Computed example of a mutant assay.
Amino acid sequence: MPIRIPDELPARDILVREGVKVMDEKTALRQDIRPLQIGLLNLMPNKIKTETQIARLVGASPLQVELTLVRIGGHKAKNTPEDHLISFYNTWDEVKDRKFDGFIITGAPIETLPFEDVTYWDELKQILDWTETNVHSSFFICWGAMAAIWHFHKVPKYTLPAKAFGVYRHQNLKPASPYLTGFSDDFQISVSRWTEVRKEDLRAGSGLELLMESKDTGVCLISEEKCNRLYIFNHVEYDSTTLAEEYFRDVEAGAPIKPPHNYFPDDDPKKQPLNRWRSHAFLLFGNWINEVYQTTPYDLAEIGLDRMDQRLTG
């Protein structure tokens, strides 16, 4: 089954050209099937690019998925046209009474700020708490993962002496995990961050399980059985050229940046980079969607009821 997104969303034409199955809204309404409800809280500045990257991976599933785009209500985006946000995005306040099978929170280019100094931190904390009772499974990416693991477990982030930037080899630590079905023992992932979390801060008994790491860039993917959470600190969703765009942007701005590690052929920024992480990006998101489908209640209203009971009785 294809992904269901608004008919006029710019990502639609890109996905169709790439061969991703996209369902128009009229056809979706005629089908007697409950699509998976996936929400995307998009914190990235270029929201159009990020929503396309995520829709591409979510839309590769054989299941019908309806993607709802969400934004922070009190934050004004600087790099996305206001009419795009009005046409295609809901504020969290507009969706907070809904239930979602899955909910994705992206990264944001504010890694070095203390969490409490982020202008929308109070609203994000409310959203994170809301996921416990209104979302079956959450998927947090890069800064979104750092924010979530700090909020739920007080696992700190540390500023790096230099940006972890490039394509790095990673190890599959838990081949039996349903999220890593089909993964190689050793694979490459795109990395772009100024901060990190460290595995020594993952307390015993916290329920946090380290699934992937790199000898060079450390912790990559953590799962948590409670509330079916995934935390990924790197960028499997990136396009082939995203690291190049970040590199040339920083060079133009005069920032102290080296070419991304193991990215440009012969480390030559004039050469076209190769995508070495695409297949595992599709695998990871496909495994997550499948796990959501296998475990979520058929009746959306039942999502989070057991967690709500635990809150009331705990």
Rank of each mutant, 00 (worst) to 15 (best):
M1S: 06
P6W: 12
D7G: 03
A11T: 01
V16L: 14
T27A: 08
R30F: 08
I33L: 10
I38N: 02
L40K: 04
N42Q: 07
L43E: 11
M44E: 12
N46I: 07
K47W: 10
I48H: 01
K49I: 01
E51D: 14
A55Q: 12
R56A: 03
V58P: 00
A60V: 00
P62G: 03
L63T: 00
L63D: 13
Q64H: 10
Q64R: 05
Q64S: 02
E66P: 05
E66G: 02
L67K: 07
L67D: 01
R71E: 05
I72N: 07
I72V: 13
H75E: 11
K76R: 13
A77H: 14
A77E: 14
D83M: 08
S87Q: 14
S87W: 08
F88R: 06
Y89R: 05
N90F: 12
T91G: 09
D93T: 04
K96M: 09
R98A: 01
K99V: 08
G102I: 09
F103M: 06
F103N: 11
I105L: 11
G107N: 06
P109V: 02
E111Y: 04
T112P: 00
E116F: 05
E116I: 04
E116L: 05
V118K: 08
L124Q: 13
K125S: 09
W130H: 10
W130P: 10
C142Y: 02
V155D: 08
T159N: 11
V167W: 07
H170C: 15
H170T: 08
L173E: 10
P175F: 06
P175Y: 07
L180Q: 06
I189L: 15
R193H: 14
V197F: 10
E200Y: 04
D201G: 01
L202F: 14
L208Y: 06
S214T: 01
K215E: 14
V219W: 15
S223V: 00
S223C: 06
E225K: 15
E225R: 15
C227F: 15
N228F: 07
R229M: 13
L230E: 04
Y231N: 02
Y231A: 03
F233I: 00
A244R: 13
Y247I: 03
Y247K: 05
D250L: 13
A253H: 06
G254M: 09
A255E: 15
I257N: 03
K258T: 13
K258D: 15
Y263F: 15
D266K: 15
D266R: 14
P269M: 07
K271H: 07
K271C: 02
Q272E: 11
Q272Y: 05
N275S: 15
A281P: 00
F282A: 04
G286C: 09
N287D: 02
W288Q: 12
V292T: 08
V292P: 01
T295G: 12
P297L: 07
A301P: 06
E302M: 09
L305K: 14
Q310T: 10
R311S: 08
L312M: 11
G314D: 11
